[in-house]
């Protein structure tokens, strides 16, 4: 594994741990989008179906996949628990979390049927997961734009996620140039789309927050 890939995976891990630990220790869910978190469960479950085929890549690979699936489910469980333990914040979250995810799911399904490496269930599911991941952050960004100001939890979380996506791009170039691996067009295209979404967010964040004021997205 190259340095970009390791750094990317670590920041992905960090983003999840930031979210998990904060919700767990403070019971604070302010500014978190339940819809984005549910989408990530779907992303990981549909992507890592190869765990069932027992196609072994490495211990690292398997452990990370199991961690991503289980932690994403656990985050949704924690958010659901807030329904009882932090009812006011939960109601506010549901109210603000009003992005229509049907379009994201439908769009990803259509794109997966059109663009995939092979027309098998596992490969179409993999393609669905990369398309869905590229846009899964939209409900979260939408929520942020509606609330007008961002919690430090959300900012740290989105920042770590954005860093992970950005680092995958030099990783792919490294793989292609240095490791002579096949260039995976689908992963690259969806990865670039995703990184552009984040960079748009950071651009606005920089303009509005660093230079004073709240966060609002177009």
């Amino acid at each position: 594994m190259n340095p970009f890939r390791i750094a990317a995976d670590l920041s992905h891990l960090a983003s999840i741990l930031i979210l998990l630990r904060t919700i767990q220790t403070t019971n604070c869910i302010d500014g978190v989008s339940l819809k984005t978190q549910v989408l990530y469960v779907l992303v990981f479950v549909s992507r890592y179906l190869d765990l069932l085929t027992l196609h072994w890549i490495s211990l690292y690979n398997t452990l990370m996949k199991v961690f991503f699936i289980s932690s994403s489910i656990y985050i949704v469980v924690l958010l659901q628990r807030a329904k009882v333990s932090n009812a006011v914040a939960y109601k506010e979250m549901i109210l603000k979390d009003s992005f229509k995810i049907g379009y994201l799911l439908g769009g990803s399904a259509v794109l997966a049927l059109l663009f995939n490496e092979r027309f098998t269930f596992i490969d179409v599911a993999w393609s669905f997961s990369v398309w869905l991941e590229s846009i899964a952050i939209l409900p979260q960004l939408f929520m942020l734009s509606k609330s007008g100001k961002a919690q430090s939890l959300t900012i740290h979380y989105i920042f770590a996620l954005g860093l992970y996506r950005a680092l995958y791009i030099p990783n792919w170039i490294w793989r292609w140039l240095v490791e002579n691996k096949n260039f995976q067009k689908l992963a690259f295209v969806t990865g670039v789309i995703q990184t552009l979404l984040y960079s748009d967010f950071f651009y606005i964040y920089y303009k509005k927050v660093i230079k004073g004021g709240g966060v609002s997205l177009p």
Binding site: D9, F68, D123, A187
Partner: peptide, 10 residues
């Protein structure tokens, strides 16, 4: 091709 694509990335 008939061989399954290998996704060694996460």
């Amino acid at each position: 091709s008939n061989t399954a694509p290998v996704h060694d990335e996460l």
